[in-house]
Simulated assay, not measured.
Amino acid sequence: MAPDAPGGHAVPAPLTPPLVELRPLVSADAATIASWSLDPRFVAGADWTPDLSLEVHVAFQLRIVTDPPADLIRLGAVHEGELVGYVDLHGHEPRRRELGYVIGDSHRWGRGYGGAAARAGLAYGFGVLGLTEIWAEALTGNTASVRILQGLGMTEIDHGAPGPYRRFTISVGS
């Protein structure tokens, strides 16, 4: 609650999503990202390979940070100076890429970081990269990610198509 309003009544504090800023990842981030693999709920929700050692995850994440594939832009999602996730813009088409986002570990879920990171990813894709279309997938059972994508104004495509993923798209000016 915010300080009392005139008359002695408490005024609810405004509900605002957390600010997430995007920044390039640095080598030290690999250990942080890899540590999320120790959270079984995160591993399942993020569709990461279970039962890999922390060392394997660190090595993989370090490779992604220091020598990413040519078709991947991965940016750290930071809240109040702390890495809370990352955003991917993936693809080789000059005006179209896939948006991905991960918030780790699972104790951060449900706090607005996913929506803030995805929104920042769209802004980066359209504003910085000059994309005209961004698409995304969410596991059918990941209702939180589906809600985030819908909340961003993305349109579901292939609705009802068989498979584990639901696909969404948004174009510049949508």
Rank of each mutant, 00 (worst) to 15 (best):
E21R: 12
L22Y: 03
L22K: 04
R23S: 01
R23G: 04
V26Q: 14
A28F: 08
A28P: 07
A28D: 13
A28C: 11
D29H: 06
D29P: 05
T32W: 14
T32L: 12
I33Q: 00
A34L: 14
W36A: 05
W36Y: 13
W36S: 06
S37I: 05
S37R: 15
D39W: 08
D39A: 02
R41K: 09
V43R: 06
A44W: 11
G45P: 11
A46C: 08
D47T: 10
W48Y: 09
T49N: 07
T49M: 08
T49Y: 05
P50L: 06
D51I: 01
S53W: 12
S53N: 08
S53I: 13
L54Y: 08
V56W: 14
H57E: 14
H57T: 11
R63A: 10
V65K: 12
T66W: 14
T66A: 13
P68L: 00
P68T: 02
P68C: 01
P69R: 14
P69C: 09
P69Q: 13
P69S: 14
A70S: 13
A70Y: 09
A70K: 12
D71T: 04
D71C: 01
L72K: 14
L72W: 10
I73G: 02
I73H: 07
I73F: 05
R74E: 06
R74M: 01
L75F: 12
A77C: 05
E80P: 01
E80Y: 05
G81D: 01
G81S: 02
E82K: 12
E82S: 08
V84H: 11
Y86H: 10
Y86Q: 09
Y86R: 05
V87M: 01
V87H: 02
D88K: 04
D88T: 05
D88W: 01
L89R: 04
H90Q: 09
H90V: 12
G91Q: 02
H92Y: 09
E93Q: 12
P94W: 12
R95S: 07
R95M: 10
R95N: 09
E98F: 09
E98N: 10
L99V: 04
L99R: 12
G100A: 04
G100L: 01
G100D: 10
G100K: 06
Y101A: 00
Y101Q: 00
V102S: 12
V102P: 05
V102W: 11
V102H: 13
I103T: 07
G104E: 08
G104I: 03
D105Y: 02
H107A: 09
R108C: 05
G110R: 07
G110P: 03
G112L: 01
Y113G: 02
G114F: 00
G115H: 04
A116W: 05
A117D: 03
A117K: 03
A118D: 00
A118T: 02
R119K: 09
R119D: 00
A120W: 06
A120I: 06
Y124H: 15
G125C: 07
G125F: 07
G125S: 06
G127V: 03
G127T: 06
V128E: 15
L129F: 08
G130R: 14
L131P: 13
T132D: 13
E133N: 12
E133G: 07
E133A: 13
W135F: 15
A136P: 15
L139V: 07
T140M: 10
G141K: 07
G141M: 05
N142H: 12
T143L: 15
A144P: 15
A144N: 10
S145I: 06
S145C: 07
V146I: 10
L149G: 03
G151A: 00
